[in-house]
């Protein structure tokens, strides 16, 4: 197993860990958005989806623990690498400058940590019911589980919450737009024809994910979704 520990400790091992865990988290984001888009199909559809997820029982817990492990690995590796990067340049330039690096690529740690704060808030909001216990307590009629539809529409009916969620999607977009295309480079995919394609697709996919999330919160705020149907 020494090859594994030396790989894990190496610079490229750290990068690959970021790429692989990043890809897994991206997969979760896709399923999260697809599930939430059921909101547009009305109360019954999304509540049925929520009930289906909860009825998975032990399997749901396997997924939750797996997701948490991947998330912790992603954050911990990011912190380890960033710390090493800081040590690698003890004296900063008096006149810093860049030629072609974009804002998204230079602020990955900042956007990542911002997302961490947002995700904690998001879990306290919808999963643990700490920030808005009233919303969290909404129960579906009959079946007994949460009334996800009511939770979401009541929450995002509050413009402050809806706008806060939408603003965080800008950060998510920045993080994803650099992260997605970085994955290919990190695992060694670089090609005259495919690399420009990968960059464009990463940008569009990041836009779709963040835009989709923001669309959901804002459409509730503007009354396009919600009400009594």
């Amino acid at each position: 197993m020494s090859w594994l520990t030396s790989f894990w400790r190496s610079s490229i091992g750290g990068k690959v860990t970021m790429a692989v865990t990043g890809l897994m988290l991206f997969g979760f984001l896709v399923s999260h958005l697809l599930g939430n888009l059921l909101l547009l199909q009305g109360r019954d559809k999304i509540n049925a989806y929520a009930k289906w997820l909860h009825d998975l029982g032990p399997l749901l817990w396997v997924m939750r623990i797996g997701l948490l492990a991947v998330f912790v690995l992603h954050v911990a590796t990011a912190i380890r690498l960033s710390r090493a990067n800081k040590v690698a340049r003890p004296v900063a330039y008096r006149k810093p400058n860049t030629v072609q690096a974009n804002m998204a690529s230079r602020s990955m740690l900042l956007s990542g940590l911002t997302l961490l704060v947002f995700i904690i808030y998001h879990l306290m909001h919808f999963t643990f019911g700490v920030t808005n216990p009233g919303h969290h307590a909404l129960k579906a009629a009959g079946a007994g589980g949460h009334d996800v539809y009511a939770m979401v529409t009541t929450s995002f009916g509050n413009p402050a919450i809806a706008i806060a969620y939408a603003v965080f999607q800008v950060v998510l977009f920045l993080h994803l737009s650099h992260g997605l295309q970085s994955m290919a480079q990190t695992v060694g995919i670089h090609h005259a024809r495919y690399t420009p394609m990968i960059k464009t697709v990463s940008f569009l996919v990041a836009l779709a994910i963040a835009g989709g999330n923001a669309f959901l919160s804002l459409s509730v705020m503007f009354g396009l979704v919600g009400g009594t149907q």
Partner: peptide, 22 residues
């Protein structure tokens, strides 16, 4: 090469591509 590079205390690439620009 990679382990020699790491031992020298260089940082880790974050794919900003500033290197190829300069």
């Amino acid at each position: 090469l990679v382990s020699a590079m790491d031992e020298e205390g260089f940082g880790n690439c974050t794919n900003q591509n500033e290197c190829e620009a300069v």
